[in-house]
Simulated scan of single mutants.
Amino acid sequence: MRISRVAVAGASGLIGGALTRSLRADGVEVVRLVRRAPRSQDEIRWDPGARFVDAGDLAGCDAVVNLAGAGVGSRRWTETYKARIRDSRVLGTAALAEAIAAMDSPPRVFVNGSAIGYYGRTGDRIVDESAPPGEGFLPELCVRWEAATAPAERAGVRTVLVRSGLVVARDGGAWARLFPLFRAGLGGRMGDGGQYWSFVSLHDEVAAIRHLLDSEELSGPFNVTAPEPVTNREITAAMGRVLKRPTPFPVPAAVLRTVLGEMAGDVLGSARVVPKRLLESGFRFTYPGIDEAVRAAL
């Protein structure tokens, strides 16, 4: 399917910004959804908190991509901030899905961000898209987040749910915090280091979203993670190898719980998630290994 015009919510974020650059480099017109008054013709105003977006502003778009939401790892999870995380995703998704459903000529595809937090803590057990949701704040959030796409799907719009892993990137996400520590020789495993981290390079994250946009037969949930999840201990070793720095300073679990609060459970928890449906669809990763993904980020 040839896509010529795409509306992107969350275009100022790590993934949304990279996707916007990639699409524009290939001549695709990108319209960005913004929360302020538009400053140019390539911007549309929306208010995710109020579940508002004018369906007329989406006219002519072949696709809508929603990657908006408050940062999960940006600060400690107080009840107030958890509500902000939840509302920024669920209400924003609902606004877009309802606007799409109200259009006379809706876009052909709605790609909505989600996360492997859907599965919760899986330990050493390998999980793919057939696994049920886990328990806790993040799984419950993801279930509501994905359910908010229902109006678009009921209207007959192909709907894709992108369950992203931990994106390896220099300028955002978890790795933006890790790189300075490891460069300074202060990096180390977290807890016992045995927990699995399902990662994906930023390059492959964007390539996967574009693959899902272009493949007319694909819908439903897709895990966007590298094919082989690795443990935090293995990630620590890879960071040391690539950056040529020692990794002598493990962070005890008790310290993480004190500093991060409830979020520490997800840092210390293990999620061994694989991209079964993505691989079956013919997608191939450019940076499947952790060393390659770290080098690509640098």
Rank of each mutant, 00 (worst) to 15 (best):
S40W: 04
A237C: 03
W77Y: 14
G117N: 03
A271C: 15
A25Y: 02
G194V: 01
R154Y: 09
C142T: 10
I126R: 05
I44W: 09
G282N: 06
G113W: 06
A83K: 14
V200R: 13
A94M: 01
E292I: 00
V162L: 10
G156Y: 08
G165N: 01
V90T: 09
L19F: 05
D291L: 12
Y118D: 00
P139M: 09
E216Y: 05
T258D: 13
G123V: 03
F249A: 13
G185N: 03
T78F: 13
R245F: 07
T236C: 08
R163W: 00
V34P: 12
L33R: 04
W175Y: 15
Q195G: 00
D26Q: 10
A18K: 00
V127E: 08
S130L: 12
I100Y: 06
A264E: 05
L161K: 07
V167A: 12
V294D: 11
R35D: 13
V200N: 13
F182N: 09
V259Q: 07
L268E: 04
G194K: 08
A271M: 13
R144I: 00
L212T: 11
T159D: 08
A9G: 07
G191H: 10
V230W: 11
G69Y: 14
G289S: 14
R163G: 04
T231N: 11
V255H: 12
Q41S: 12
L186P: 10
R241Y: 06
W197Y: 09
A237S: 01
G165R: 01
L161N: 00
K82H: 02
R295V: 12
V157R: 04
G220F: 01
P248S: 03
A150V: 00
R284W: 00
D291R: 07
A264S: 08
I235G: 11
G71N: 15
D54I: 12
G27H: 12
V28K: 04
D204V: 03
G13K: 00
I100F: 13
R32K: 12
G92N: 02
R158V: 11
S88Q: 05
G172K: 03
G134I: 05
R2H: 09
E234T: 01
M263W: 07
A155M: 02
A11L: 10
T20S: 06
S281T: 06
G117S: 06
F222Y: 15
P252R: 09
G220I: 06
A25M: 04
V267R: 06
R163D: 02
A50G: 11
F52V: 10
S114C: 07
G73T: 11
A55P: 13
E140W: 07
A296K: 08
V259K: 04
V274K: 14
V53S: 15
G71L: 15
L138K: 11
H203R: 15
P151D: 13
R257Q: 13
L178I: 06
P246Y: 10
L33S: 11
I85L: 08
R284Q: 10
R233G: 01
V294I: 15
V294S: 10
D291W: 10
T93Y: 11
L202Q: 09
T78I: 14
L181P: 08
P248E: 04
G60V: 11
G185P: 03
M239T: 03
R189D: 14
M190H: 02
T286R: 15
I126E: 11
P180G: 02
R183Q: 13
Q195C: 03
D62P: 10
G220D: 05
A55L: 08
M239G: 01
M1T: 14
R84L: 12
V294T: 05
